[in-house]
Design a protein around this nucleic acid. Structure first.
Lengths: 160, 160
DNA sequence: TATGAATCGACAACGGGGTTGTCTACTCCG
DNA sequence: CGGAGTAGACAACCCCGTTGTCGATTCATA
């Protein structure tokens, strides 16, 4: 059985992700954004794109609202967002990304893009594009766990 | 800035990994191997390939030996390995993969390979092979965090 | 041969990132 | 008005990893 090619592929995908994230966060730390984690990046992006309450963020990230709240607490401590009461709905705490938060997002985005550019240079832009297209189809095309969990949440109403 | 293509690529890689792992572990659970986690699979493989002590496993996986020990404890509880004293060196506990452990590894490997086959069918075997080759180069070719940490461990002697 | 350095594994405490369950406050609809 | 649904906070827990410390053992060497 030597080694499972399938298992190795999985490891390569994970390794690729970690490689990118390590590069980006190492550089982020050098530029005044220490303590940033991968989840912070992506959560902040989702918030800025409209998921501006804890519950909504949880839905977007397919995570419980309590889980999302923990990330939000971390982001607030790091100074990347503020929690403000909503004027119309007193249940809500509206999330607003701070200037520092936007700085970090912009920097993170450009660093990620740099890494991607390096990859494109090594493997050729066409190859990279087709890799992305395939991955997107393969990942989107699964009715499995994550999406199933998301659907479950919607179907069952609130558990919490 | 719309969305960072680089960040999306990272997410795709992570999603690809999770997609594979979810598929495999869902099926593993259906076949009598509930409770298996991604880390268990890969750790058991490393052990079977020769990393048969906690410290050595830690080195192979680039984690602390305490971290490796926790995985080992979990694997032992699940019945996938046994810890036996070494006859020559009383400090060591030799790790031996049980029959059930070999079953799980074989099943996991074939499930991973199945997923990979499906991917190959969708994107074409040549495309997949070149994706793997590129990823392997990109991941191996970084003198960064993980390997750096591994080297640090060797250089500094034992911290623990 | 005795001793000091290195290594092994175990244990405790902690942090990050998740989970579930419970709770109160609030909105919204009939 | 009252009940159903939703928001967020809090507690307790799990997993996986970390560092630091420890006693036991081996090994090198003076």
């Amino acid at each position: 059985m030597a080694r499972s090619q399938g298992a190795e592929l999985a490891l390569l995908l994970l390794g690729g992700f970690q490689s990118m994230v390590d590069d980006v966060h190492g550089e982020l730390a050098h530029r005044g954004h220490e303590g940033v984690r991968a989840s912070h990046e992506f959560a902040l992006r989702a918030i800025d794109e409209g998921a501006d309450t804890a519950s909504e963020l949880g839905r977007r990230l397919s995570v419980s609202k309590q889980g999302a709240a923990k990330t939000i607490t971390a982001l607030e401590k790091l100074g990347y967002l503020r929690r403000e009461p909503d004027s119309l709905d007193a249940r809500l705490k509206r999330l607003r990304v701070t200037d520092r938060g936007h700085d970090m997002m912009a920097l993170g985005a450009s660093l990620f893009d740099e890494v991607r550019e390096r990859w494109a240079a090594q493997m050729g832009p066409g190859q990279l594009a087709s890799l992305e297209a395939h991955l997107a189809r393969l990942v989107a095309h699964r009715p499995s766990s994550v999406d199933a969990a998301a659907r479950l949440n919607e179907d069952l109403g609130e558990t919490t």
